[in-house]
């Protein structure tokens, strides 16, 4: 083992542990002797799942009182470190809360962060991180030269989640120092925008649409095809920004990372920010009018054509098969 102790911040939505947290716990126990988890809210409901993935302890900062997770979690971790209990590394997910916590923690303990990590390897008694740059065409490796702990912000689906056979993690509460103005934001309501059918991040088939669809109404073709293939509809940033579909459909750098059996990109040219979120799909099918579109460089099957002609034909043929 290269490291003694790793703390993994467990992102959650209510009592549901984010799947990326289980991926990070799995990787952490492969490279460190001791893995401890940190979360917010009620810990007892998730201690079993967190323990089963390798954490021996689960620390919670308690109820955030309607506040965002970033300030209290970062402050509690920083307080533990300054009291002399520092791990070798801290793993966080490249998620909304994960980035908030990592940013505030980095400033509080004056340590740099490595973000967009897609793999980690042991080397010379420490960790070397891997980052996909320039749309995944080049791999960059990096390491900290700073004092420990290193803060690693890791992209979803970089590692598989496997159970360790461990029992429930031992739960305790970490005190949150006075936050002052930093903790003043309050969540007053939450809204869910997920569509019916499999979740985008977990679906075996993802059908995504881009600007090539021409107009918002044509996104129905994407939804129809996804439904026929029991998959989830996705989108490029361009059409999310244009307001055609909600942000929760976005695949890519700032959206979701997907790793389906097959990814069907319809009218998506393949900006680097999009490719980073889907290039690990087992199979990629692309339909695009422009034969020079970068998406064809990574497609297993590329169809140079108009999505508004090809998709209705494809949908009709699949419907006939029943």
């Amino acid at each position: 083992m290269a490291l003694n102790t790793i703390w993994v911040v467990v992102d959650r939505s209510g009592d549901k542990v984010a799947s990326v947290a289980l991926e990070l716990l799995t990787k952490a126990r492969q490279v460190a002797g001791t893995v401890e988890a940190i979360t917010w809210g009620d810990a007892s409901s998730i201690a079993g799942q967190v323990g089963a993935h390798g954490a021996t302890a689960l620390h919670t900062v308690g109820d955030t009182g309607g506040g965002l997770a970033g300030p209290p979690v970062a402050a509690a971790i920083a307080a533990k470190i300054s009291s002399g209990t520092a791990p070798d590394a801290i793993f966080l997910a490249q998620s909304y809360n994960g980035r908030d916590i990592a940013g505030r923690l980095s400033a509080r303990i004056d340590r740099p962060v490595l973000t967009n990590v897609v793999n980690l390897a042991e080397a010379d008694g420490g960790l070397v991180s891997e980052h996909a740059i320039f749309g995944g065409t080049e791999i960059l490796n990096a390491r900290f030269t700073a004092d420990l702990p290193g803060i690693y912000v890791i992209r979803a689906k970089s590692f598989g989640a496997e159970e360790s056979g461990g029992g429930p993690a031992a739960v305790d509460t970490w005190e949150v120092p006075e936050l002052g103005a930093t903790g003043a934001a309050r969540v007053v309501a939450s809204h869910v925008e997920e569509t019916a059918g499999p979740k985008l991040a977990e679906a075996a088939v993802v059908v995504s649409g881009g600007r090539g669809l021409g107009d918002a109404g044509s996104y129905k073709l994407i939804e129809d095809l996804a439904k026929l293939l029991k998959g989830a509809p996705g989108a490029s940033r361009a059409i999310v920004d244009a307001g055609w579909v909600p942000y929760s459909h976005q695949v890519g750098q700032t959206g979701k990372t997907v790793k389906p059996t097959v990814y069907i990109a319809c009218g998506i040219s393949g900006a680097t920010q999009h490719m980073v979120g889907m290039k690990s799909a087992k199979n990629i099918i692309a339909i695009n009018k422009d034969q020079e579109a970068p998406i064809f460089n990574i497609a297993d099957l590329g169809v140079v054509g108009d999505v508004k002609k090809v998709l209705p034909q494809l949908i009709e043929a699949l419907q006939k098969r029943g």
Binding site: R111, P112, L114, A123, V128, A132, I133, G136, T137, E138, I139, L140, N141, A142, R143, F144, T145, A146, K279, I284, Q291, F296, N297, I298, A299, D300, L301, G302, V303, V304
Partner: peptide, 19 residues
């Protein structure tokens, strides 16, 4: 306080069929 240890070309996806 961090350093790049290597930059290498990523393993390219096998070229697909374009029709």
């Amino acid at each position: 306080r961090q350093e790049v240890t290597a930059v290498t070309p990523a393993e390219a996806r096998k070229a697909g069929e374009i029709v």
